[in-house]
């Protein structure tokens, strides 16, 4: 639909507040913080002019919501980890991009709207990412929600709409996905020093996913999303969506240089800081037959067909 945008890099970062609020309480949390800091520096050294965040901790229902407040200011507190402290923030948002992204969504059949309200509750994952990756608001940002009902087709189209808007405005973007790998936390309080991945199975799957990321095989991870959801994701939502969106936004192929900067436990969940940089080479041994969707046609009204 449009020319390829310039994606400077993609980052996959965890949503938990520990690297921001308590990096000293656990060596692993500290290593995640260090990895965030490396990414921050790399962003500063790049010529990116947009940070686009897809956050799995911002659920939406009415389509896809896009943060458009030019300067959201608030103090956020996490629902679970409120005892770690508060997260005051003041961010700088790219309102022009947000509006263009919304229009691009609508042009591809998606329900979408911008939100621009004082006091709007920006989610923990987005707050952590922006405070650590862009602490001085050097680069304007934008955040898009994760619709609770959306599945693969919708996510793929959402990513393409993000690209359309980047191309139209000529933005050079850092694409950030905020998500855990395995997302099962311990259901009781633990001594921070004893944090570990919840189970060997979760750990094994995480390491397999990280192997793919290291090889730059983003499209392969995207195509394995349903398997990943079944193996290491608790059923909070219908699918493991972040890889679909990340691949669709960055480009649905395996031509990336991948680097896993850190992989640690966050109260049992798998937290990783990963960088993908577009490159020329490709690796992979998989070919898939799932359709590459360009336009979202909405529900197929299966429930209403043939109903008595």
């Amino acid at each position: 639909m449009s020319e390829d945008p310039e994606i400077v890099m993609g980052l996959y970062v965890p949503p938990h507040p520990h690297p921001l609020l308590a990096p000293d309480q656990n060596e692993g949390w500290g290593r995640l913080r260090d990895a965030f800091d490396v990414c921050r520096q790399r962003i500063e050294e790049s010529d990116a002019d947009l940070i686009l965040i897809y956050s799995t901790t911002w659920p939406s229902i009415v389509g896809h919501q896009i943060q458009a407040h030019p300067k959201p200011v608030f103090t956020h507190v996490d629902d679970d980890f409120h005892f770690l402290g508060s997260m005051p923030y003041e961010f700088s948002m790219d309102t022009e991009y947000a509006n263009e992204f919304r229009d691009a969504c609508e042009a591809r059949g998606l329900q979408s709207r911008t939100v621009s309200y004082d006091g709007f509750p920006i989610d923990t994952g987005s707050v952590v990412a922006l405070k650590l990756l862009n602490p001085d608001n050097r680069i304007p940002a934008c955040i898009v929600s994760s619709n609770v009902y959306s599945n693969r087709a919708e996510q793929i189209v959402l990513g393409k709409a993000a690209r359309d808007a980047m191309s139209k405005l000529g933005r050079k973007a850092v694409v950030v996905v905020v998500a855990s790998l395995s997302n099962r936390m311990f259901t009781e309080y633990i001594d921070p020093s004893e944090d570990r991945i919840h189970s060997p199975k979760d750990d094994e799957w995480n390491r397999k996913i990280l192997e793919f990321f290291s090889d730059g095989r983003l499209e392969d991870i995207s195509q394995l999303s349903r398997e990943i959801q079944g193996q290491v994701r608790v059923s909070k939502v219908v699918a493991y969506k972040p890889a679909w969106w990340m691949a669709s936004t960055m480009g649905q192929h395996n031509n990336y240089d991948g680097e896993v900067l850190a992989y640690e436990a966050l109260h049992g969940a798998g937290g990783a800081v990963i960088q993908l940089t577009p490159s020329a080479g490709s690796i992979g041994d998989k070919e898939f037959d799932e359709d590459d969707v360009e336009y979202y046609h909405g529900d197929r009204d299966v429930l209403g067909k043939g109903a008595i």
Binding site: W58, P59, S60, I61, V62, D79, D80, F81, H82, V115, Y117, D118, G119, F120, P121, D123, M185, F186, T187, E188, Y189, H267
Partner: peptide
Amino acid sequence: HWQTYVGTHFLGLERFQNISVDPIFPNLFR
């Protein structure tokens, strides 16, 4: 809409003054 994965939590301060903006329907509830 106060979802906790680690245990059950209880409000423990006497007063909360703020603005509540619905994350899903901010157009309706501030």
